[in-house]
């Protein structure tokens, strides 16, 4: 992320003239991601929201990014730890503790 992009977000006066079409792909993606993550200051957020209404390609990127992010959130399902792995971890912890006790005794 360039310093200029960060700074331009901080000063709304700058942003008024900020042309999303003039941004490189990387910077535009960063801006759209920050927008979806709710990390933009209010003025920048308004500009992206307005741009979204008037620019079809950006609107499509945002819509499909939103769907992608919601699909990723759905992957946060409860984990099913295999019973064998669970048991063997607990047994290994007990044996590590026993080993440590024996070592401390011998010292």
């Amino acid at each position: 992320m360039t310093k200029n992009y960060r700074e331009s977000l901080r000063s709304p006066a700058h942003l008024k003239s900020m042309d999303l079409k003039g941004l490189s792909c990387r910077k535009r993606v960063a801006l759209l991601c920050d927008y979806l993550d709710g990390e933009l200051p209010a003025a920048a957020r308004r500009i992206v929201a307005a741009h979204r209404r008037s620019c079809l390609p950006c609107a499509r990127v945002l819509a499909s990014l939103e769907c992608t992010l919601s699909a990723l959130r759905e992957l946060r399902t409860p984990a099913r730890i295999p019973a064998a792995a669970r048991r063997s971890l607990r047994a290994a912890l007990r044996s590590a503790a026993g080993k440590r006790r024996r070592q401390e005794k011998n010292q």
């Binding site: 079409k21 390609p57 499909s64």
Partner: peptide, 13 residues
């Protein structure tokens, strides 16, 4: 990858 502003062809989701 270029996501051109110009190619406003596809339907909006």
């Amino acid at each position: 990858r270029p996501h051109d502003h110009e190619d406003g062809e596809g339907p909006a989701l």
